[in-house]
């Protein structure tokens, strides 16, 4: 192991492999996410991006390899323990509490941050700190006007904003966003990019994204995942100049 880079990495993947039966979806992924950077994973459909996120966040265990969060192994831990260790993710398909109000959707995560997971002996209405922090997140994602509406009644882009808000509530330093602008109009995408930029200020961001303009305007570094392994990791300009990447991925789009 290279000691100097290990210290730097907020998240480090070494030789991460995942097979579903005979199909090897990830074939030894190596990836270092530096503390405080905004990092995108791009790649064609079926390259294994979602599987990669599911392994990091604990939905699946890797078949082989090591995943370390701040130097501590998290491979195979259950999702709630990974979240408590400081890594929070959003979902590609909106994954909210449809029959709860927007405010309550956010408050669940705030309660978790304060360790009030089994609070049974005090009414929630009197928890000033929790309710104030919920209001704060509500304002950051621009949903104040919708606070008391059911989350299931929000528009699609509002639900996407709520999804990002929920990901922030637990106070994690490392945020994983899975295609946060998927299905959005150009205008909505621009708003979402602004939102992601402000809310991830001072945090480490790893995102899967298909929209190259989003990647190029938001991210410090980009990794290209093709057929289950990382082809290259570089700055956005470096990646677009990379001949192998052009051939394997960007070239397809250009052609």
């Amino acid at each position: 192991m290279n000691a100097s880079t290990t210290e730097q990495a907020a998240l480090r993947l070494a030789g991460v492999t995942k097979s579903f039966g005979p199909i090897e979806v990830l074939k030894g992924v190596n990836l270092d996410i530096r503390r405080g950077e905004r990092h995108a994973v791009i790649g064609p459909n079926g390259a294994g991006k979602s599987t990669l996120f599911n392994l990091i966040s604990g939905m699946f265990s890797p078949s082989a390899g090591e995943i370390a969060l701040n130097g501590r192994s998290i491979a195979g831990l259950s999702p709630h323990l990974i979240n408590r260790a400081g890594l929070s993710r959003s979902f590609q398909i909106t994954n909210i509490f449809h029959r709860l109000s927007v405010f309550e959707n956010l408050r669940i995560g705030i309660l978790a941050r304060h360790g009030m997971r089994y609070g049974l002996f005090r009414p929630i209405a009197r928890m000033r700190q929790v309710n104030d922090e919920t209001t704060e997140v509500l304002a950051r994602v621009g949903l104040e006007a919708r606070a008391h509406d059911l989350a299931g009644d929000l528009t699609y882009s509002e639900q996407r904003a709520l999804e990002i808000g929920m990901t922030l509530t637990t106070g994690a330093e490392i945020i994983l966003l899975d295609e946060p602008t998927a299905g959005m109009s150009r205008e909505e995408t621009a708003q979402a990019v602004d939102l992601i930029r402000t809310v991830t200020e001072g945090k480490t961001l790893l995102m899967v994204e298909h929209d190259m303009s989003v990647v190029f305007s938001l991210c410090d570094r980009v990794s290209v995942l093709v057929y289950g392994s990382i082809l290259a990791t570089d700055t956005p300009t470096g990646i677009s100049a990379n001949r192998a990447v052009q051939e394997a991925y960007l070239g397809e789009e250009a052609a």
Binding site: N95, L100, I108, A112, I124, A125, T170
Partner: peptide, 25 residues
């Protein structure tokens, strides 16, 4: 009206997300 009471409703709606918010569902 308690935090756990609200969590109970969240469990009904979406157990998976509860887990990814740091709760042992």
């Amino acid at each position: 009206r308690t935090p756990f009471g609200r969590l109970t409703l969240a469990l009904r709606d979406n157990e998976q997300r509860v887990r990814f918010l740091g709760y042992n569902a």
